[in-house]
């Protein structure tokens, strides 16, 4: 993730120098390929979602979104994100803090493990919870005996979502905090600040843009996750269907207009996410240039 940021920030402005400049036709060709690809594979499907959603007019569109099941799916998706994102914000900061500020055995292993949700298929992430909490699972009996439902219920969906979205905040913060070191924090402690004051007044302001970036990506994934949630949800209409699952059900029922209507909401979410992401990147870039200036001027 941080590599992409570096790429976007570092090289856009000064890439073309006389020594690396290519002939005009190569430039035209490359830009042409990029634009064609972008149009066919990205822009076209996005437009198609909205066109299909509105094919039968506003009335159908609104009706599809305001049906009982759709509203339930939207509510569940929002609830899931509302639980998973703050928790991962907390876990992410804790993990990044531990890794960037302390030396302890198993640190490398922890860094690798944080990436686990990215490297396994989401379906497997879901299956892990079936294994743990399913009727035949390790803890299934105990939970059944105490009448706690995890699988095919909201807790399972939230757990699977937390698992899948865990790396976003931590991955964003670890390189950032490692790069900043702890001199400012030390300065704050010497001046008498308590642990909480140090975090609030020096650590947080320095990582806020990276943190926000991680949260935005985490939120987008939490709302859009399909695979892991699909395994643990049980697809009970109006009860355990999130928006992506609801889209699938509608689609399988040949209810295309309604499927695309709900899909258009998810697409809208993606566009808003991208917009916010760009804004945040601009801010954090500004901050980075300032701190670079701070280091270079001395």
């Amino acid at each position: 993730m941080s590599a992409t940021i570096a790429l976007q920030h570092g090289s856009l402005e000064r890439y073309e120098t006389p020594s690396t400049r290519e002939p005009q036709w190569i430039k035209v060709l490359l830009i042409g390929i990029a634009l064609t690809f972008f149009t066919v594979f990205l822009l076209f499907p996005l437009v198609a979602v909205f066109v299909e959603a509105f094919r039968k007019g506003w009335g159908t569109y609104l009706a599809a979104l305001s049906s009982h099941d759709a509203l339930a799916a939207i509510r569940l998706t929002l609830l899931t994100a509302a639980i998973a994102v703050p928790l991962n914000l907390f876990f992410g900061i804790s993990a990044a803090w531990a890794i960037a500020k302390f030396e302890f055995p198993g640190k490398r292993l922890l860094i690798t493990l944080i990436d686990l949700p990215f490297s396994v298929s989401p379906v497997i992430s879901g299956l892990i919870y079936v294994l743990l909490f399913g009727a035949q699972g390790w803890f299934g009996e105990w939970f059944a005996a105490h009448d706690i439902k995890i699988l095919f219920a909201v807790p399972g969906i939230v757990l699977a979502t937390i698992f899948v979205t865990f790396p976003f905040v931590a991955r964003e913060l670890i390189p950032l905090m490692e790069a900043q070191g702890s001199e400012e924090e030390e300065a704050a402690v010497v001046l008498g600040a308590s642990g909480w004051q140090v975090f609030w007044h020096t650590t947080l302001p320095n990582i806020k843009w990276g943190l926000l970036y991680g949260v935005i990506l985490c939120n987008a994934r939490a709302m859009g996750e399909f695979g892991a949630v699909s395994v643990v949800s049980g697809h009970i209409r109006g009860m355990t269907n999130t928006m992506p699952l609801h889209v699938e059900i509608l689609y399988n029922e040949y209810n295309y207009a309604a499927a695309f209507a709900v899909a258009s909401l998810l697409a809208l979410l993606a566009i808003v996410t991208l917009g916010l992401k760009t804004l945040v990147e601009r801010q954090s870039h500004k901050q980075k240039t300032e701190s670079l200036a701070l280091e270079n001027a001395s």
């Binding site: 001199e183 400012e184 030390e186 300065a187 007044h201 302001p205 320095n206 701070l294 001395s298």
Partner: peptide
Amino acid sequence: FQHYALFRH
């Protein structure tokens, strides 16, 4: 501190 460690924000 050697590099001053001023609070940059």
